[in-house]
Computed example of a mutant assay.
Amino acid sequence: MTTRRSFLRGAAWMAVLPHLALGTDQGALDWSSRGAEPVPAEYPYDAPIPDMRSKITNPLPRRVIAGYWTYWGSPIRLKDIPARYNTVFLFHATPVGGAGGTSGAVQWNAPGDGRGAASNFREDLAEFRETRTAILSVGGAQAHVDLSTRARAQAFLDSIKRIHGDLGGFDGLDWNNYEGGQRPDTEQMIWVSLQLKSTYGKDFAITSPPAPWRPDDMTHCRAMIDAGVMDMVSPQYYDGAGLTTEGYIVNSVNEWVARMGDAGRVGVGFGLGDAADRSDQAVVEGAWKSLAARHPELRGAYTWDLPMDERMGWPFAENIAPLVMLDLASASPPPVIIPPVFPIRVRAADPTHTVVAGDTLQKIAVRYGVDDWREIAALNGDPDPESLRVGHFLRLPPGS
């Protein structure tokens, strides 16, 4: 999934976040202008969008017990996932053409078939969805998707509808597509989420596993909540030095609940496992007990990932899931309308450039009228000026 973002670049967020300025002098996004950028009439769609085969969307459970089901290797068949998992994130759809994507469209990756997961996938997915919730995860694992324009967002939306029809349906979209130096394309992601809920119903779930330390992710997720489209935000506490301790998890989730304004929209992304940068069972149990005592309305928890939980004998399913469900009866149902508790302004995105073959920092500087290519290098971690990776996004100085 997301061996997300260099922790060294964001480890100080806990000290900075309480003083985070959530607004800028550039003002908030004007949501009334969402349709201002027309999609070209000649836009090349890949294939017709199939008819919607699944007429029912399973709602996100009141208390989510989830795991990321990865397609690589020989994954377990969906129907054989332990019943205590009431939700699964199908990992993952990736951009056509590699990281960033050539058009904004994404494609589903068929699983390995060592245990029949591929040959039985559609039937197993249909059976799974008879009693549980399946959510398509997009991006992650360095497979970010560029949704910087309405045309790219439209191509993305159409590709999600194709995948939905091809697979026979799923119950939501997991925005896992921003990581590393990529800022979330908030305006377009809200627009896509609104279109999906309009097409498949209000119960079509929108979720996201942001980096817990990154202010941009926090601002983005709150904007999604205020726009009425984000159902669950679950910061991920794994794949980074210092992320997996009980104290850090508890303090961080407390901050996220305060910033999101509603514990019922916040989950916890654990990495229960015996590998590096994972939490052991005692840490996960201690963190959940502390958090549930303070925030009984928390939406739930997930683990990254199902293959590790299976290899270890299903400790998350057998031991953590009952704990997470224990206090459900005392939790209040989530409110229908979430009024903002403080204003959030979404900072206008800095200009970017997508590297193509033959690019150098000096050529890019000339193209955008930047006096010194070193300015671009400084904004992007000083990459080798003569060896840029095709498809990589480079931030440009404001006004370029």
Rank of each mutant, 00 (worst) to 15 (best):
R150M: 05
A241T: 13
D262F: 00
Q182C: 02
A331F: 06
L196T: 04
E297T: 13
D384M: 09
A143E: 10
A11S: 15
V64K: 04
G172A: 09
G140P: 03
V370W: 05
F89E: 03
F128L: 14
T2V: 11
A301G: 08
A15K: 15
A365I: 01
P215F: 06
I338Y: 09
V266G: 00
G101L: 04
P340F: 00
T3D: 15
A349I: 04
M232Y: 11
I320T: 01
G23I: 05
K197E: 03
L167N: 05
A331P: 08
R115V: 15
I206D: 03
M189G: 00
G264V: 08
T360I: 07
V268H: 03
W72I: 12
F156H: 10
E310V: 05
F91V: 07
Q195H: 12
G247H: 13
P315C: 02
L291V: 13
L167I: 14
A223K: 04
V355T: 01
R132K: 13
M14W: 12
G269T: 02
G100S: 00
R34V: 11
D239P: 09
A41H: 12
D350Q: 11
I206G: 01
S148I: 03
Y368V: 02
P398I: 09
P343I: 04
G240V: 07
A155M: 15
T360Q: 02
D226H: 04
V138P: 08
D185R: 03
G247L: 11
Q26D: 15
G269C: 09
T133K: 00
E285I: 14
G399H: 01
P210E: 08
L328P: 07
A134H: 06
E187N: 12
R62W: 02
D158W: 13
I163C: 07
V355C: 03
G10C: 13
D158K: 12
T352A: 09
T2M: 07
V88M: 01
R389V: 15
D226P: 05
F91Q: 03
A143C: 10
A293D: 13
L90C: 01
E255K: 13
V355D: 05
T2F: 05
E285W: 11
K161D: 11
G261V: 06
D113N: 15
P334V: 15
R311C: 04
V88I: 12
D166F: 09
P334Y: 01
I160K: 00
A151D: 07
Y71N: 10
S279V: 08
P235H: 12
P18V: 00
D359R: 04
D217P: 11
H92R: 13
F170D: 10
D231E: 09
W108M: 10
A155N: 09
T219P: 02
D124T: 11
L272G: 00
R222H: 01
G140Q: 13
G381M: 01
